[in-house]
C-alpha cells in the first residue's frame, strides 16, 4: 500500500517510446500504416498509374517507338474489330461463367448450409475447400486430362452411347471445336470449375446467416415453401451471390492462363495484354487493354457495394 499513486516510468528505450506513443495515438497509427502506405500507396499505386498513363501515349507504327504525347488514338485502336472482338469475347465469357457458377453454386451452398449434417457437412466442407486450395495449375492440368480427346470424358460419353451428343456439341458453331480441350466450351467449363468455390463460400455464408426463425416466421405468415424461398431466403442470399460474382467475374476478366492452355487459341484480354507488352512491344496498347477490366470492375464493385455485397465477404 505504500506505493504512490503514480508509478515511476520504466527504464529502457522501448518502454519510453511506448509511453510516448500512448500519448500520441495519432503518431502511433501513422507509424502502423506507414509501411503499407509507402509500399502500396506509393510504389504500387504509382507504378499502376504510370502504367495506365501509358495508354494515353501511342506507338510510332514505323519505328515501334513510344511517342510521349497525349493522344486517344490507342483507345481508338481498341475499337478496331480485331481488338474489340477480344474485349467482347472476354466480357461475354465472364458473364456466362458468372451466371453458370451462380446456378451451380446455389444448390451446393444451400444444401451445405441448411441440410447437410455431421458427415455430410464435413464432406461438403472438404469438397469445397479442397478444390479452392489446390494448386490452380494442377486444377487446369486435371481438366486437360479430363477434356483430352482420348481422355475420360470422351470415354464416358462412349460408354453411355452418347457420342452423338458430344459430337453435336462440338459441331456447334463458335463454341464447338475439334475436341473439348480446344473449344470455347472447354474454356467455359474450366473457368466455372476453377472459380466455383469462390461463389459457393459467400453464398453459403449468406445462407447460414439467415436465422431459422425467419424462415419459420415466413411460413407462419402463410408463405408456401416456394414463396419463403423466393421472398425471404433468396433476397437474403443475394448479397452473397453478388459477392461471389465479384470473384468469378473479375477473375475471368483477368485470367490469361486458362484460355492459353484450354481453348480455341483466340485471345482473351489477359492474353492480349501479355502479347502486347511482351512480344509485340506495344506498351500503350497493353495499358489500354488493362484499363478495360479496371473500368468494368470499378462499375461492378460500385454496383455491388450498393447492394451490400461487401458485408457478405
Amino acid at each position: 500500500m505504500s506505493a504512490g499513486a503514480i508509478l515511476p516510468a520504466r527504464g529502457g528505450l522501448a518502454p519510453r517510446l511506448l509511453d510516448w506513443m500512448m500519448r500520441h495515438p495519432a503518431m502511433f497509427t501513422f507509424l502502423l500504416v506507414l509501411p503499407i502506405v509507402l509500399w502500396l500507396g506509393i510504389v504500387y499505386i504509382g507504378s499502376l498509374i504510370a502504367l495506365l498513363m501509358q495508354s494515353f501515349f501511342s506507338i510510332d507504327e514505323f519505328s515501334g517507338v513510344v511517342k510521349h504525347e497525349f493522344t486517344l488514338s490507342t483507345y481508338a485502336e481498341l475499337l478496331r474489330p480485331a481488338n474489340f472482338d477480344i474485349i467482347l469475347r472476354t466480357v461475354v465469357m465472364a458473364a456466362a461463367v458468372t451466371l453458370a457458377s451462380a446456378a451451380i453454386a446455389f444448390p451446393i451452398a444451400y444444401y451445405a448450409a441448411r441440410y447437410a449434417k455431421g458427415k455430410w457437412k464435413a464432406l461438403f466442407y472438404i469438397g469445397i475447400m479442397l478444390p479452392l486450395w489446390s494448386s490452380y495449375l494442377v486444377k487446369v492440368y486435371a481438366w486437360k486430362l479430363v477434356l483430352a480427346k482420348e481422355g475420360i470424358l470422351t470415354w464416358i460419353f462412349e460408354k453411355l452411347h452418347l457420342m452423338w451428343l458430344l459430337d453435336g456439341l462440338l459441331a456447334l458453331p463458335v463454341v464447338g471445336g475439334n475436341s473439348l480441350s480446344v473449344s470455347y466450351l472447354g474454356t467455359f467449363i474450366v473457368f466455372i470449375y476453377i472459380w466455383l468455390p469462390y461463389m459457393i463460400i459467400p453464398v453459403q455464408a449468406a445462407l447460414e446467416r439467415v436465422p431459422g426463425a425467419m424462415m419459420e416466421a415466413a411460413s407462419d405468415l402463410g408463405a408456401t415453401p416456394g414463396q419463403s424461398f423466393r421472398m425471404v431466403l433468396f433476397p437474403l442470399a443475394l448479397p452473397g451471390i453478388v459477392a461471389g460474382s465479384i470473384f468469378t467475374f473479375a477473375l475471368t476478366l483477368g485470367d490469361y492462363i486458362i484460355p492459353q492452355i484450354i481453348g480455341s487459341g483466340r485471345l482473351f484480354i489477359g492474353q492480349a495484354v501479355y502479347v502486347q507488352q511482351g512480344t509485340a512491344g506495344n506498351i500503350p496498347l497493353a495499358a489500354a487493354f488493362t484499363v478495360v477490366p479496371i473500368v468494368i470492375m470499378g462499375v461492378y464493385l460500385w454496383g455491388a457495394r450498393k447492394m451490400g455485397a461487401f458485408d457478405a465477404l
Partner: peptide
C-alpha cells in the same frame, strides 16, 4: 482508402499487378 489499398492487388487482375510491379 487504406482498406481499399490493401484489397487492390488481389482485386485487380494479376497481370496488371504483375506488369505494374515489373515496371516499378
Amino acid at each position: 482508402t487504406i482498406s481499399l489499398l490493401v484489397i487492390l492487388p488481389i482485386a485487380l487482375p494479376g497481370i496488371i499487378t504483375g506488369i505494374s510491379l515489373r515496371s516499378a
